[in-house]
Each structure stands twice: as structure tokens, then as C-alpha cells.
């Protein structure tokens, strides 16, 4: 489902003396449907960078990132947009929404975007919010005022609203209590069962061991610092 070949990336900081910072070299990775793999490595090794490159958020300099039959590294914006709408989900650590939009609508939006009828989309949104223990009185409020943990759960609900065939999870269980952590892990399990290919970053080792089939240490892709 997700296949990465010879992927390389470096940042060029034009406004800081055109410093070139290589961050990835010859990354290789492959995830099958129904498989969950964890990216590991020390902080700064490039886990999030790799994740963002798969999502098309960061531009690749060389190599291929195949999601289904689309090569993210060379795809047109509209191809990436339709891929993100239909195929590739992403739960980031940060919630980015239009201010003053109700939580329920924030969660339902991915479903509305693929043309799900409004009432059906809302039903799904409500059941996810319920599952993730967001009190019902908050559903009609904007999540921008919620606590960090609540925002994270809204973000997860949104990411799981549509059954994406491929999912990227950036610290999905961070800042969650045991009960909600359990809910998220069961969501991930369910996604695996229906055949989703999942790449995740988990600092929580117990969670990682429970849902992940394999670990990939991105340190292997980190370019050796030019002395």
C-alpha cells in the first residue's frame, strides 16, 4: 500500500546563508494493507519529516513515495488532494481548524468532503466523539478552546471518521489517559483489521508493542554529518 524507495531530502535555508541541511538519504520502506509499522529513532532523527513527506507536506528531493499507485514525490497538487481525501489519512499532533466551527462539524468534515450525506456524517462524528469520551455538551463548541488532551482526541476522531486505506499517525496516544489510550489503540486495531496500512510514531512503548507489527529505525536513513 505504501512503498518508499531511495527517498532523500535536504532543507536549504536561503535566508540563513543558504545553509543546506540534509535530513534524509536513501530511505526505504514498505507497508502492506493490514500492517502497522512504527517509526523509531531518537528525537530529530527524521520520523516526523518522513511522515510529512509521505503526506506531501514536505517536498522530496529524490526517490519515490508510492501510496497506492500515486507517486507523492512527483504528483500534481490535485492528485495529492484527492489522495488525501479518499485514501491517505493523517493524524497530526496539532489541531488546525477554522475558528468557531463546532467540534461535531470538524469531525464530520472528512466525510462531507467525500460526499457522505450530512446526517450520516454527523452520526459517525457523534459516535466517535462518544467513544473518545468527549462530553456531549462540548460537541457544538469550537475545539479551539479545549484542553490539549481534548484537542488531541478531536483530532483522532477526525482522522478516523473516514476509513482511509492508508493512515499516518503522529503520536496518537500522547497526552491521553489510560482509558482514552485504550480507545485509540482499539481504533487502530479495527483499522488494521479492515486492511488499512498504517505508519505511526509512538513514544509510548507499550502502545507500540501492542499495535505495531514491525519497527523501522529511521536513524538508518539519516545522512552522516559531513564533517
Amino acid at each position: 500500500m505504501i512503498r518508499i524507495e531511495n527517498l532523500s531530502k535536504s532543507f536549504v535555508l536561503h535566508n540563513q546563508g543558504s545553509a543546506t541541511i540534509p535530513v534524509m538519504k536513501d530511505a526505504q520502506l514498505s507497508v502492506a494493507p493490514g500492517e502497522c509499522i512504527a517509526l523509531t529513532g531518537v528525537s530529530g532523527a527524521g520520523k516526523s519529516t518522513l511522515m510529512r513527506m509521505i503526506y506531501g507536506n514536505y517536498l522530496a528531493n529524490a526517490g519515490r513515495i508510492m501510496v497506492g499507485d500515486v507517486d507523492i514525490a512527483t504528483a500534481q497538487p490535485r492528485e495529492i488532494i484527492s489522495l488525501r481525501r479518499e485514501t491517505l489519512g493523517y493524524v497530526s499532533q496539532f489541531l488546525r481548524v477554522v475558528p468557531r466551527v463546532a467540534t461535531m462539524d470538524v469531525v464530520a468534515e472528512p466525510l462531507l468532503a467525500i460526499g457522505t450525506p450530512a446526517d450520516q456524517a454527523r452520526d459517525k462524528a457523534c459516535s466517535l466523539l462518544q467513544m473518545l469520551n468527549i462530553p456531549e455538551r462540548l460537541w457544538s463548541l469550537s475545539p479551539t478552546t479545549f484542553s490539549g488532551g481534548e484537542q488531541q482526541r478531536v483530532n483522532i476522531a477526525r482522522g478516523f471518521a473516514h476509513d482511509y486505506p492508508a493512515l499516518l499517525l503522529d503520536e496518537p496516544t500522547a497526552s491521553l489517559d489510560a482509558k482514552n489510550r485504550e480507545v485509540v489503540l482499539s481504533l487502530i486495531d479495527a483499522a488494521k483489521t479492515r486492511g488499512a496500512a498504517i505508519i505511526g510514531i509512538f513514544h509510548d512503548e507499550a502502545a507500540r508493542d501492542r499495535v505495531c507489527d514491525r519497527e523501522v529505525d529511521v536513524t538508518g536513513f539519516t545522512p552522516q554529518r559531513a564533517a
Partner: peptide, 8 residues
Amino acid sequence: LTDQVLDD
């Protein structure tokens, strides 16, 4: 892509 241009 908007987020790509803004983030990278």
C-alpha cells in the same frame, strides 16, 4: 500544495 509551500 498549500501546506507544502507554507511548511516546506
